[in-house]
Simulated scan of single mutants.
Amino acid sequence: MAKRLLRDVLITHKNLTTSPLRINYKHRHLHTDDRIPKEVKIPVQWGHISAKLWGNEQEQPILALHGWQDNAGTWDTLAPLLYEKRPILAIDFPGHGYSSWYPPGMMYYPWEFVRLILFIKEYYKWDKISLLCHSMGAIAGLRFASLFPDEVAFYIAIDSLVSDDYDLHLVVDKYPKTLRNIQIAQTRLEDEPPSYTIEEMTKIWHMGTMKSVALESVKHLLKRGSKPSSRDPNKYYFSRDSRLKHTLFNPENKKFVEALVKRLSCPSLYVKGLDSPYASDEFSVEMREMIRKNNPKFDCHFVPGTHHVHLNDPEKIADLILPFYQKYNLI
């Protein structure tokens, strides 16, 4: 059953029509049934950014940003609860989902995702951008909203705001191995990764997130995160860029992060999963409280759930986002 489900998804994806052209949200209908997300391609210098759009083109969508090694499928359960209020454009970051990988020899740098937000905003000629973000996407979203406070209508973050604070000695100790792994990964870009059955992939993804993504939720990420194996027709492989596993996350100066978060001034909603280990370190909590102190339009909520609470229990998040829209007259 699981094999047939994914096979149907992959076949459907092959038959989807995508538009590489710029979308005019005022004049052009992207699809006739708003309940079915539309595949969209945004051209970039190294290829394209893939995205899926819920809702119609009559109004500017919210830009939804996923977490590290996830993809736009992370919004598959929440977006249907929200798009009637505002359309949602969920992208795959470079190297993730259906988006193009960076060219050989290049590596993924988290601050580049901030520049990607700026690129998308300018590409669509949006006056202000609205952000719905999770994990890595939430960190990128806060960086953008803090750097360009007059260009963000609102910012919603799920389970992350700033990068977690790590022991610098452990970070430095890990760098030599990471750099060597990066070198190896660069030589294997054309190689097909190991393949698995759908049941095996589901368990691997579930365990790889420390059980944060519920077993029944993995299917939403597998739609865009797997491909059929050319070696075994009954197996599939994880299709994201393997270089993502070895990215160098550079710890940032705490004074720099503090100066950044003090600039967050737009209406902001932060939802923290109580069962998530992330954003719980002393520095992350300190920065959260600094935002609360400096931004009168900062709403903070704690809900039972894992790091992927928005995917596993979307109603909990929707019940906070919809009142947030109303409170600040965002719809």
Results as ranks from 00 to 15, higher is better:
residue 186 Q to C: 06
residue 14 K to T: 12
residue 5 L to C: 07
residue 277 P to N: 09
residue 193 P to A: 13
residue 192 E to Y: 03
residue 240 R to V: 05
residue 179 L to C: 10
residue 300 C to S: 13
residue 34 D to R: 09
residue 95 G to R: 00
residue 92 D to I: 04
residue 17 T to N: 08
residue 134 H to M: 05
residue 247 T to R: 14
residue 39 E to H: 14
residue 87 P to C: 05
residue 92 D to G: 03
residue 22 R to L: 14
residue 289 E to C: 03
residue 65 L to P: 00
residue 92 D to E: 02
residue 324 F to H: 08
residue 120 I to H: 05
residue 309 V to F: 08
residue 17 T to S: 14
residue 227 K to H: 11
residue 238 F to Q: 02
residue 16 L to N: 08
residue 64 A to I: 05
residue 281 D to M: 10
residue 283 F to K: 09
residue 253 N to P: 01
residue 39 E to F: 14
residue 166 Y to M: 13
residue 327 K to Y: 04
residue 220 H to L: 02
residue 289 E to F: 07
residue 17 T to H: 11
residue 99 S to G: 01
residue 320 L to Y: 06
residue 186 Q to N: 15
residue 20 P to Y: 10
residue 54 W to K: 04
residue 256 F to H: 14
residue 37 P to T: 01
residue 15 N to E: 11
residue 9 V to G: 04
residue 322 L to T: 11
residue 316 K to G: 02
residue 92 D to S: 02
residue 327 K to M: 08
residue 109 Y to H: 14
residue 106 M to F: 10
residue 140 A to Q: 09
residue 122 E to C: 11
residue 194 P to M: 09
residue 73 G to V: 00
residue 69 Q to F: 07
residue 144 F to Y: 15
residue 269 L to G: 05
residue 260 L to E: 14
residue 103 P to K: 07
residue 120 I to Q: 04
residue 115 R to V: 06
residue 160 S to P: 00
residue 78 L to V: 01
residue 120 I to F: 01
residue 149 P to M: 05
residue 33 D to Q: 07
residue 161 L to A: 12
residue 317 I to W: 06
residue 192 E to W: 03
residue 295 N to D: 06
residue 177 K to L: 14
residue 85 K to C: 05
residue 47 G to I: 06
residue 28 R to H: 14
residue 27 H to V: 04
residue 217 S to N: 00
residue 323 P to W: 08
residue 294 N to T: 10
residue 262 K to R: 15
residue 66 H to G: 06
residue 199 E to Y: 07
residue 310 H to T: 02
residue 11 I to E: 13
residue 2 A to R: 12
residue 106 M to K: 12
residue 262 K to A: 09
residue 162 V to Q: 00
residue 201 M to D: 04
residue 49 I to Q: 05
residue 101 W to C: 09
residue 188 R to K: 15
residue 166 Y to K: 13
residue 253 N to W: 09
residue 198 I to L: 12
residue 226 S to A: 15
residue 164 D to L: 03
residue 283 F to E: 13
residue 220 H to G: 01
